[in-house]
Amino acid sequence: MLKEITIGQYYPGTSILHRLDPRVKLLGTLVFIICLFAFGTTAAYIVAGVALACMITISQVPLSFILRGLRMVLILMLVTALFNLFLTPGTAIVQIWKIRITVEGVKMAVHMVFRLSFLVLGSSIMTLTTTPNQLTDGLEKGLGWMKKIHVPVHEIAMMMSIALRFIPILTDEANRIMSAQEARGADFHSGGIVKRAKALIPLLVPLFVSAFRRANDLALAMEARGYHGGVGRTRMKPLVYRRRDFAAYLVIACFAVLMFLAWRFIHLELPFLP
């Protein structure tokens, strides 16, 4: 169950998206998300959908891999859609007893589903084409200006990259401890909520103990290799903008403009679509 997580899972490749500077991809994703919220019309979403389709094609990541990210938020999406479907006031289409579905509700539900799935797909493309390390490097460099206002950017980035490296290790460990306790007759899969929560103690205690032990070991290993914070550090792979990165910034800007234009000037009147 823990193995299903795809966010933060890099899909190795050599596409142009893989080679872009992580700062470009981070900003691109940010712009994409902001546009989704700011320009929420059918026409704009068509633009966003086309852009997304292009990115997926360029990334060369198999579609099944990208869609896996969607599966995770499926329940969230269903719940949001149902809430919107039943609880939005407006002109009723169907009414059974006190439950009514309105035109506005359908519109809202469709809208939410698209917004959420575009959001997830957009960020999945970024995480699938960027190694966690590039990502944290990008954040560290991109947010470097925040050091001036005493935000410990380097430390945060280091913590993130270490956390990312240890996620698979701790996941394996959790699975192993779970199996070990099951071998002692533990039952994680049946019973009520209280019983299940209680059954987690034999899993969580050893997991925390182990996480602390690892953290301790790692701190020691880092210290032994002369780590003393971000001051005076050089980089093995410093981030340098290349021509393709500037081109990508241009593409992002064009996308934002297109979204704005579509939202402002094209009004598509489609039934059941916002």
Partner: peptide, 18 residues
């Protein structure tokens, strides 16, 4: 069966919790 076949995992001390 899990009681009849006792399985001691690698580094079993990491499963102690109580």
């Amino acid at each position: 069966l899990r009681c009849r076949v006792g399985l001691v995992f690698q580094y079993p001390e990491y499963q102690l919790f109580d």
